[in-house]
Design a protein around this nucleic acid. Sequence first.
DNA 1: CTGTTAGCGCTTTCAT
DNA 2: ATGAAAGCGCTAACAG
Lengths: 327, 327
Amino acid sequence: MAQATIRDVAKKAEVSVASVSRALNGHTNVRSELKERVETAARELGYFPHAGARSLSMARAHAIGVMLPDLHGEFFSEVVRGMDREASGRGLQLLLSNMHANPDQAAEALRTMRGRVDGLIVMAPDIDTDTLLQHMPATLPAVFINCHGDAQGRAELRVDNFAAAAEMVAHLVETGRRNIVHLSGSAGNREADERERGYREAMRKAGLEPRVICGNFTETGGAEAAAAIIEDQKPTDAVFAANDMMAIGAMVAFRDAGIGVPQQIAVAGFDDVPLARLISPGLTTMRVNIADIGARALARLADMIDGRDDSEVECLRPELIVRQTTS
Amino acid sequence: MAQATIRDVAKKAEVSVASVSRALNGHTNVRSELKERVETAARELGYFPHAGARSLSMARAHAIGVMLPDLHGEFFSEVVRGMDREASGRGLQLLLSNMHANPDQAAEALRTMRGRVDGLIVMAPDIDTDTLLQHMPATLPAVFINCHGDAQGRAELRVDNFAAAAEMVAHLVETGRRNIVHLSGSAGNREADERERGYREAMRKAGLEPRVICGNFTETGGAEAAAAIIEDQKPTDAVFAANDMMAIGAMVAFRDAGIGVPQQIAVAGFDDVPLARLISPGLTTMRVNIADIGARALARLADMIDGRDDSEVECLRPELIVRQTTS
DNA sequence: CTGTTAGCGCTTTCAT
DNA sequence: ATGAAAGCGCTAACAG
């Protein structure tokens, strides 16, 4: 036998479907005797309301669509955890869609969200925002995280890579470093560019000469850069890598070459991956609070769904984590 | 203006809604001239089909409900990644629900899944399966992962924690360890219990005295346990933690205390989270292929939804990964 | 307080 | 090949 419907319950309790609906949804205008009869009938039939039908009728899905790229490890779980933190309190569920950097797949996923969710959180650093917007209803509330391109007035959330990188440089300068080399991230990557820009700006402000070595966000790249620095022989007392993995690669390479970290060369990264505090010496880095990004995105989206307009571009500021001290 | 509906498209294209439905869903019995008219109208109106209405009408949601406990980090992302791997190819989306070890919340989450998903994957090590079953439609296909209690003939997937833990202990004994302490997981957690049972059994078999410190699956817990071991001064040459994060916490604590790992104390974990091989020294552990669990659960569920019966209890056996050698 | 009825937006017979 | 109409399971006026 198929699942019991509200009509089956109504028949069994000898009332109308409207009364069943009222009774089960805790409306006050139902005699308690009737309410009890309905509850008994529902229990006996193993009845569960059909959330799909419910949301069609109420024009409210109580779900948020979440589009994420093929994220690895911590990052993925943290961002989802942050969303969940805000969602569960609001009675919202998360409909997940990983899009594997494939625009067609992403478009398809976006389309199938319509009518199942009340809003969308989209994180698609590799896909042009324009393309995405073409595949989602214009009236569907949405928040874009670190998007690529013009969000056309949609709500946005991004990480303030520029300011954060500048803050790191300022910190290094403050602790007496002068010859600070920047290991940049992959060319063309938006985050990498912003971090480099922050570095250059802060160096300029401090009256120091910038020196940039091109990297690629990998541990190996960090090691190679370290080798180049050693080879080069130019005076260097700090390396600021565009992410932690490069920083770690460089740090290990320096250590292997007998260079004291941080005594001779301080090494700083960006992200605060878990490994950053587990390695020794700890890595000074900028903590991007990933869970907060998810939480914030969801909170804003929930507000939009409740009718509050929002087309702001909000910037989350990473936090400086000092783990290398030259005492 | 609200979102365009199929009726708006029909009106604009001057055809019936039935034709619009047929045209847009690629049915063959539509004149191409008409089909084109419909597509144009849809485009001009910015029409996107309402997936919710669609699934009500077709009695098929093309979504899977996923109930997970409040998993930390890697584990969470890996299991979801595995599910996604199988789901996206089948055109299924994942509706996520984290239940925070709270049975009431879990029950509520389960109820709201009815009518939005075609099946359920439930992983709730802390909650009695009986309770869970009471809150889900009897006819809804479901796969239980590592559930706690009698699944009453429902499809099950579990990890052979008992045998795996025993294998780890045997390995430690084989490499000369004798005073092996077990850091247990959260009390009442089924996996934790099974791993402890495997430990005790293997110790008994080896004629060794078991020693268990209660943990909680967290890195901090591991660190605290290590402190207790150091404090305690009882001879200890190996620590087998019920999961990797505790093992890592303990390892770092030992290192900070100047204790050689693995020379003085070998540390072993369970799970093989990605971090386990990045940390130094590497962590000897039991590899639970987490992504595979998710993938397997989803594959079985998809089969059930397609009508294939399944009430099997499938056991996945973790694999020993040796990274610490005492040479 | 309770029942009747008209949708929510779509698919799918059943006619034509 | 196309249209009219009857649902899918529920909620929400609108009457009484």
